[in-house]
């Protein structure tokens, strides 16, 4: 545990500091404090560069885990900040005022996961999709193959094999029988 971990834990109740490798760590905070944590990390702790933001659908826990990857270029280390939000009603504070490119990521997450960022510019506009009528497609309960089969016409003759069973039949035909 280092200084920053203690500081974050004391100020914002951060927990679970984990050193992934020597120049990358991860920490978990509450989603409600995410903007304060980010502002602190940017202004006080030197993590001035936002590499990317994304979300992970932890459907088993009923939560989206947001990941904010920051980088301190002077100290040459990175930090991934995690925050869980409720999967049923995902709303997170927007950080578009802290970083100039954050609104694009928020727009992406809004479209891909359905996570809302109130106040973020153009957040309700379509980002990469157009006329999309299905559920947010990066959620784990959206089945890409079923949607594709139902929507797009297929050329007859294409076969898809399960790799494991196909290889077993090819390489060990006697064992497969």
């Amino acid at each position: 545990m280092n200084e920053l971990a203690k500081e974050l834990a004391g100020r914002y109740g951060a927990r679970g500091w984990h050193d992934i490798r020597k120049d990358l760590a991860s920490v978990e905070v509450d989603a409600i404090r995410i903007r304060d944590v980010m502002a602190y990390l940017r202004d006080e702790a030197g993590y001035g560069h936002l590499s990317f933001m994304t979300a992970i659908d932890n459907i088993e826990r009923g939560a989206f885990t947001l990941s904010y990857a920051l980088r301190d270029h002077d100290a040459r280390r990175g930090l991934i900040v995690h925050a869980d939000v409720d999967r049923a009603e995902p709303t997170v504070d927007s950080i578009h005022l802290l970083w100039g490119q954050a609104w694009t990521y928020q727009r992406e997450m809004r479209e891909w996961f359905g996570i809302d960022f109130p106040g973020s510019p153009r957040v309700d506009e379509e980002f990469v999709l157009e006329g999309w009528e299905g559920p947010p497609m990066m959620r784990r309960d959206f089945d890409s193959l079923a949607y594709s089969d139902a929507t797009y016409a297929e050329r007859p003759g294409r076969v898809t094999h399960d790799p494991a069973s196909h290889m077993r039949e090819k390489l060990y035909p006697e064992a497969a029988q």
Binding site: M137, S144, Y147, Y152, A153, E154, R155, R158
Partner: peptide, 19 residues
């Protein structure tokens, strides 16, 4: 463009252009 190729299960790409 012929049969979906690598993106045969993608939700956003068509599988055959001649449709």
């Amino acid at each position: 463009t012929i049969n979906g190729g690598m993106y045969w299960d993608s939700y956003n790409t068509i599988k055959r252009i001649d449709q």
